[in-house]
């Protein structure tokens, strides 16, 4: 089976400069992949190229094994998108928006739509101009999920929302979108709120300056990077013989460093150096992002 997302050497160039400079990315079906990056790192441009909103300057973008520009209709029927600031025609009511969205789709799951509307307590007769930002995002999610897509693209979906709405959003994505056929339901999310998606993402790619600087599995990354803090009876030793990813911090009797993949060796070394206490904690994805970006 071909990967859901297959991007090779993607370059997106705008008149004002290159936003994506040779990015490759592969996401297998049923997985949740995240794009992390600072503002302007190229996340949104990558998503836009995937969604066919911008034509790649060069490189290849395939979804479900089909070229996005050549098989537009087939690809678009299987993709849904929740933007960071969803727009609706202001005069439409929630019910009209749903009818409109359904009219554009080949598949529409009414039962799912009803379920989500109840879950989010959205009023069908409310005009979209009267909806709060959170409700607009919820409505956009209903439109996306009810179309029964195989790939759900989320672009900064929860930024600027209150904690309760963020939680409901995430629960709906996990509980409802992935419900149908978990092996085929793929998610690509670009976000700044990394800790929120910590448990949801299977793998992630850190973008910086339009390039992928780190692309790995979430569990692998967490097992790889470890922050070690050790206390000694005397002054802490100078120099750590293991591979570290950040400058070693040494304050009197305390030594702190982040070790890359050699946690056990580092522990052994610390014990051999006479450490009286060693604290070890794996890095969260957010901390790993801060190191990589």
């Amino acid at each position: 089976m071909s990967p859901t997302i297959d991007v090779q050497d993607l370059v997106v160039r705008y008149p004002r400069g290159e936003a994506v400079k040779g990015l490759s990315l592969t996401v297998e079906p049923g997985r949740c992949h995240a794009l992390f990056g600072r503002n302007g790192a190229g996340k949104t441009s990558t998503l836009r190229a995937l969604l066919g909103l911008v034509r790649p300057t060069s490189g290849q973008v395939k979804l479900f094994g089909l070229d996005v520009t050549q098989h537009e209709a087939e690809v678009k029927a299987r993709v849904a998108w929740v933007p960071d600031a969803p727009g609706f025609h202001p005069w439409m009511t929630v019910a009209e928006v749903l009818g409109y969205a359904a009219a554009l789709r080949t598949r529409w799951n009414l039962a799912l739509q009803e379920h989500l509307l109840t879950r989010f307590e959205l009023d069908l007769s409310a005009p979209t101009s009267a909806l709060s930002k959170g409700q607009k995002t919820q409505l956009a999610l209903v439109c996306a999920i009810a179309a029964d897509p195989e790939l759900l693209v989320l672009d900064e979906p929860t930024s600027g929302l209150d904690p309760l709405v963020r939680r409901q959003f995430l629960e709906a994505v996990i509980g409802v979108f992935q419900e149908g056929d978990p092996a085929k339901k793929t998610i690509l999310v670009s976000t700044h709120l990394i800790s929120e998606f910590e448990g949801v993402v299977d793998g992630f790619t850190v973008l910086s300056g339009g390039r992928a600087v780190l692309s790995t599995e979430a569990d692998v990354a967490r097992a790889r990077y470890c922050r070690l803090r050790a206390w000694f009876d005397v002054d802490a030793p100078l120099g750590v013989p293991m591979k570290t990813v950040k400058p070693v911090s040494r304050e009197g009797r305390m030594l702190e460093f982040i070790v890359d993949a050699e946690t056990d060796a580092a522990r052994g070394w610390l014990t051999a150096q006479g450490a009286v206490r060693i604290d070890a904690s794996a890095l969260s994805l957010e901390e790993i992002f801060l190191l990589a970006a």
């Binding site: 909103l53 537009e72 998108w81 933007p83 600031a85 969803p86 727009g87 025609h89 956009a140």
Partner: peptide, 16 residues
């Protein structure tokens, strides 16, 4: 400007 063009482009081919 309203933000309704892009959702349309995500689900339909550009020519359509």
């Amino acid at each position: 400007r309203l933000g309704t063009l892009e959702p349309l482009l995500v689900v339909l081919p550009r020519g359509a």
